[in-house]
Design a binder for these strands. Structure first.
Lengths: 193, 193
DNA sequence: CCAAAAGTGTTGAATGTACACCCATGG
DNA sequence: CCATGGGTGTACATTCAACACTTTTGG
């Protein structure tokens, strides 16, 4: 027998830039017995991403086994844009995952800069979610949940004037579930933690 | 080189029985180029499960690549109980996935019988979630969401008396997201669908 | 009748949306 | 002093938890 099953790790990097979600693909073959993360690290500079998680494993058309990872970046990522339908499916899966998690986790931290104005965060959410988001409510929801917090300083207004924007940052720099689904939560006094 | 990367598909079957979540493991090697589902079908009688979804791919201690699937059953499943720590981790991941999805999807359908009383469904939820669940509210929430619906007939009371229980069934027999997270939903008039 | 089990009504808390209004800045 | 962008206050809808109360049965 030849090489029984070639295994490739595919990094699907997403980044929001100028109101668009940019997708970049990188891949690396995995050596026998090698941990998946090693191959992933060969595919992309892994510490350039604030969050990485496994997406899905499937057999590609050419018969090769592929394990896809979602990687979220704040800065541009080198690599190829998706070309084949298969790659576009992976990107779609990555975007769907991101969209879902934006609603009930703090993943935003992996896409946003250190400090940001609410309007900037809003633009990011709009791009990733694909629908409009009210800055007013975005601020209130994320503040109430403790996902973001105020930080000193303000963003100076542009030439057209306007009130200076307050700056915020994400409270955590690791993925956390922030909305313990109201549905079917345990009974009793509010979870004491 | 020998067989470069042996790939095994592991089916983690979960079933709720007498207030307990029972986990059963089955595995099958995947042949080169073979779709994952084929190997899965060799591991378990796949049509015995109302719901199956991929969990995670990882390299096992022995260097073999493993892709785990979560399979939900209504009837007993043949196979081995988890023994190694690795297997117990997989089972834990499966249970975590089930727990999460019980809250915002209709996965319950894959564990419950055709028709059931609310108290029976409650027992199932209690076992899977690991915390108490109020039958009163369970009924109201699932009815309101359209996840379950009334069905003709009642369950006769036992020897100790009591009002006969109304019977229900799950409205769908495929996985559906039932709670489009209240958080950050699109603006405008209530989604017209 | 009384205990047991099931189901309904009602209240209150939490969380989000919508929208009016106030604030700070540039020209 | 006004347009512009930013922030706050408030009213309202939705959803769920809690719990009292009613209904239906067996003995």
């Amino acid at each position: 027998m030849t090489d029984s099953t070639s295994h490739v790790v595919v990094a699907v990097a997403l980044r929001v830039h100028e109101g668009r979600v940019e997708a970049t693909l990188n891949r690396a073959a995995r050596a026998p017995g090698e941990p998946l993360e090693y191959a992933l690290a060969r595919a992309v500079r892994i510490d350039g991403f604030a969050h990485v998680e496994q997406l899905e494993t499937r057999v590609l058309r050419d018969g090769a086994l592929a394990t896809a990872y979602l990687a979220l970046a704040r800065a541009p990522v080198e690599g190829a844009p998706p070309s084949t339908p298969e790659e576009q499916e992976l990107v779609a899966a990555a975007q769907a995952r991101l969209r879902a998690k934006l609603s009930y986790t703090n993943v935003g931290f992996a896409l946003a800069p250190e400090a940001f104005a609410i309007s900037e965060l809003r633009d990011l959410y709009v791009a990733a979610l694909g629908h409009d988001v009210s800055p007013t409510n975005l601020q209130r929801v994320l503040l109430r949940r403790g996902v973001i917090e105020r930080v000193a300083g303000t963003r100076a207004p542009g030439r057209t004037g306007g009130r200076p924007a307050a700056l915020f940052r994400f409270a955590a720099d690791r993925l956390e579930v922030t909305d313990e689904f109201a549905a079917l939560r345990p009974p009793g006094p509010r979870a004491s933690g």
